[in-house]
Amino acid sequence: MDPSGIFFTSHGSDRALVRTRPQAAALALLIAALALAPLVLSERWIALGYAMFIAMIAVIGLQICTGYAGQVNLGQSAFMGVGAYGCAWLLHFPQMPVVLALVLGGVAAAIFGALFGLTAARIKGFYLALTTIAAQAIFYFLVLNLPGEWLGGAGGLHLDNLQLMGFSLGNDRSIYWLTLAALMIMTTGAFGIIRSRHGRSFEAVRDDDVAAGMMGINVAAAKARAFLVAAFYAGIAGGLWAIALRHVSVEQFTLFNSIWMIAMMIVGGLGSIVGALIGTILIQLAREGVVSLGPQLVDLIPSAGQDIVFASMNVLLGTVIVLFLLFEPKGVMHRIEISKRAYRLWPFPY
């Protein structure tokens, strides 16, 4: 809902993402602040920043697949792995330029993801969740059992001396800017997809697949497309992760990561791109808080011991998420929308 007194005179401006001048100014300020942040932040915050950006890209993909198209996806981490290995392989062996390797890694993941999307045409719910877990198993099995010269086996692949347009990608700041640029492109792209006929076909399939079919939407193809988009986003995120760590191995892409991504998506709010971003920030900050608070607590209460403190911090984090799901099951975004609406209507009730 727009604030009162704001009207649009063309269908184009009614569909725009940034709808008013203050919004545009706020967005420009935010982007400028994010871009300049590494000049003042410490190494640790920069590293946390790009880890967040990368996670955001993957969670946006998951949001399109699960939040918009309604298809359960527990394979997002495996899709990330395929993208990471694809990108690393292209950088390592044919020594492709970074951007090309990233995109092709994403495409490889997208193809892998679409194969699982095809199964979604026939199965739903729990059964689909199990099938996407198979993606994880297949990924592990392939990487560990293919000849070691191909993908490095259990040791993984190393990347050295990467450059992008003359700049070295060897320091954290350049990684930060690369991932920020990628996040901006992928976020804009996600808004494009959900505003197009494809986004509407995803939502139609989620809300009522019988009606979607009768409206001329090929339901099976739409589901496969949703997985393709999710896996492409995961693949780009995985490629960035490989570049950031200059190393890939299977342990970076576990089923547990997929579950964390689902937590980020749900906390942010299903069916909202901005929700995916907010959820990722909240969960990543909470995890970071637990990691940094742990040692301080150990110092404070030495008798508790390290093991107990770290274990109980994870229990605390889990409890917070459970409570959040109980009291705010529609996510942060839902609450924000309600407050925004109330604020714009005030002092009238509707």
Binding site: G189, G192, I193, R195, S196, R197, H198, G199, R200, S201, A204, A212, M215, G216, I217, R225, L228, V229
Partner: peptide, 15 residues
């Protein structure tokens, strides 16, 4: 949604 089949944009052009 009823216009879906009459529209043509592909996934990359939607992106």
């Amino acid at each position: 949604v009823g216009r879906y089949a009459h529209m043509k944009c592909s996934l990359p052009s939607a992106f």
